[in-house]
């Protein structure tokens, strides 16, 4: 697929959607008219119901084409940018980071509905990383017996090779992320709450470690400063888990990355710029945290 074909694919989806919405509007107004003709009553309730059903039906009917467009966008626009920044790229739109990997960090429950896609595995500055969009939901039943879904986590999950070797797990979670299960009472792993010497850091983050010394080893004053800097540069709640010499980062941003705007004409320069901005989320972790510094990679 090239840019022209991508634009055609976008126009095709938009056209189908417009036709669908148009039919829905005509049918809705038709119902109002028929109702008025036979019952003599102007009732607009049906407009909302048929309108809603029309939008729903249109979305279902255009889903396949929309997915094709999104896939094309990611291959034509996003992957091309990846190739200029990363090495050894493996990009799989249909798979994501497996649920058990996130579950194993013990940072939060992985809920009733787990969904992950847009998997990227690559190298940046010789640091291997994995990335994926992740959405975790829980189903709740209220006092009236109605079931509804609550989002536990929606955002990105990153896994980086960490440049320090440590024995025990360490969890760092920004305060205010209400679904955190840090150092959980019923966790199979025993965690201690750690107070570090940086008062500001302690105010912003909760730190739990299996071994306090590892917490001080990994979270040096410099690293804490960098984490605070990262926290100021992102929108959303940050979670860090240092486990098996890997750094897991969860960014609860409430949005997916690299998603195209269906109603905006493809402008390759603009789209590349947007993709680069979003890629900076990944490169910032390596650059700001200095993960490419391999001074500590080989232990004694």
């Amino acid at each position: 697929m090239n840019i022209e074909e991508l634009e055609k694919s976008r126009e095709k989806v938009v056209k189908k959607k417009k036709i669908g919405y148009g039919i829905a509007a005509i049918v809705s107004l038709g119902f109002v008219f028929i109702n008025y003709m036979f019952n003599g009553v102007l009732e607009f309730d049906t407009v909302f119901i048929t309108g809603f059903l029309g939008v729903l039906l249109t979305s279902v009917l255009t889903m396949k084409d929309y997915r094709e467009f999104v896939k094309g966008y990611k291959k034509v626009v996003v992957l091309e940018i990846f190739k200029t920044i990363f090495k050894n790229i493996h990009f799989d739109l249909d798979r994501g980071i497996p649920e058990e990997i996130i579950s194993n960090t013990g940072m939060m429950d992985t809920g009733d509905i787990y969904h992950s896609n847009d998997y990227i595995c690559a190298k940046y500055k010789n640091v291997s990383f994995e990335f994926s969009d992740v959405e975790i939901e829980e189903e709740h039943t209220d006092s009236d017996g109605d079931r509804h879904r609550v989002t536990v986590f929606k955002g990105q999950w990153y896994i980086f090779d960490f440049n320090k070797q440590f024995k025990a797990d360490l969890q760092v979670c920004e305060k205010g992320f209400r679904n955190a299960k840090l150092g959980g009472l019923f966790s199979f792993k025993k965690f201690n709450k750690v107070q570090l010497e940086d008062i500001e850091f302690n105010k912003e983050f909760n730190v739990f470690a299996q071994n306090n010394l590892d917490a001080f080893y990994v979270l040096t004053p410099n690293t804490m400063e960098k984490i605070k800097k990262l926290n100021n540069s992102v929108h959303g709640k940050l979670l860090f888990c240092f486990i098996d010499n890997k750094l897991h980062v969860g960014l609860h941003s409430g949005k997916d990355l690299f998603e195209p705007n269906l109603y905006k004409k493809i402008n390759i320069e603009q789209n590349h710029k947007q993709a680069i901005e979003e890629i900076q989320m990944i490169t910032n972790f390596v650059d700001i945290l200095g993960l490419d510094n391999d001074l500590f990679r080989k232990g004694v």
């Binding site: 107070q195 570090l196 306090n212 010394l213 001080f216 080893y217 500590f296 232990g299």
Partner: peptide
């Protein structure tokens, strides 16, 4: 490299003690 590594461990132990 080992010297750097052990010094980092010593710094961590010192910081934890002082904290």
């Amino acid at each position: 490299q080992s010297v750097i590594e052990v010094e980092e461990h010593l710094q961590a132990a010192r910081r934890m003690y002082n904290s």
